[in-house]
Design a protein around this nucleic acid. Structure first.
Lengths: 106, 106
DNA sequence: TTAATGAGAAACCGTTCGGTTGCAAATATA
DNA sequence: TATATTTGCAACCGAACGGTTTCTCATTAA
């Protein structure tokens, strides 16, 4: 069972939950109220998000407050950054090629 | 069948293919050479990546060159940016938000 | 012209996903 | 104490996923 940030944000409902929890911690019922999905369906999403450490639980009596761990989102940012760097390198090489073409023309 | 950028990058092999193609266009066989997976398995990933417009095909004789459409990656960047803005807002207006939540719960 | 190569398509297989239903445990309320 | 609420968990279901095998169809090379 793969359980990483990329797999976590693949689902639109989970992306919406993440966005919702930027506002602050919430209970499963409160979260489910914001969606068409049933409480149990939302609960499954919460489990997945917790397992890959995007969310953390805080028990308060019979309620559980789900907190967002914004730091985990940096994994995606890192990957994107890596991608952009590779792309930049590619264009650097392109520049070199274009320079060579220019000087050849002379 | 959901087919968006987020679902596309959920698979580690597909993320690797994206990284590989930053260097330049490649044929399915050339791409498959870089992985443990079979040509057919890679071909399926290429199909998915093409369907959500991360890749584009260019026929050259019996070969097909797969090009990267780096622009599509901006969808992820946009989402991340949106997320970060919400987080910033959270810290700016934490008090206001908490007040709103209080009254909403009633 | 015949053989080899590059590639997609279809059929199949086991696993995972997202969802529902039903249940049990803990806490709060009457 | 009896009841209601909040929640997680397990079993089940249909669909999608990732992969393999086999097949077909172009295109290129001998």
């Amino acid at each position: 069972m793969r359980r990483d940030v990329f797999q976590a944000i693949a689902d639109p409902t989970r992306r919406a939950i993440i966005m919702l929890l930027t506002v602050g911690a919430m209970t499963p019922n409160a979260i489910a109220d914001h969606f068409e999905s049933s409480r149990q369906a939302v609960s499954k999403h919460l489990k997945i998000l917790t397992e890959c450490e995007i969310l953390s639980q805080e028990q308060k009596g019979r309620e559980i407050h789900y907190h967002l761990n914004a730091d985990k989102m940096k994994d995606i940012e890192k990957w994107l950054e890596q991608f952009k760097q590779l792309m930049a390198k590619r264009f650097d090489q392109l520049d070199i090629v274009l320079e060579q073409l220019k000087s050849k023309r002379k």
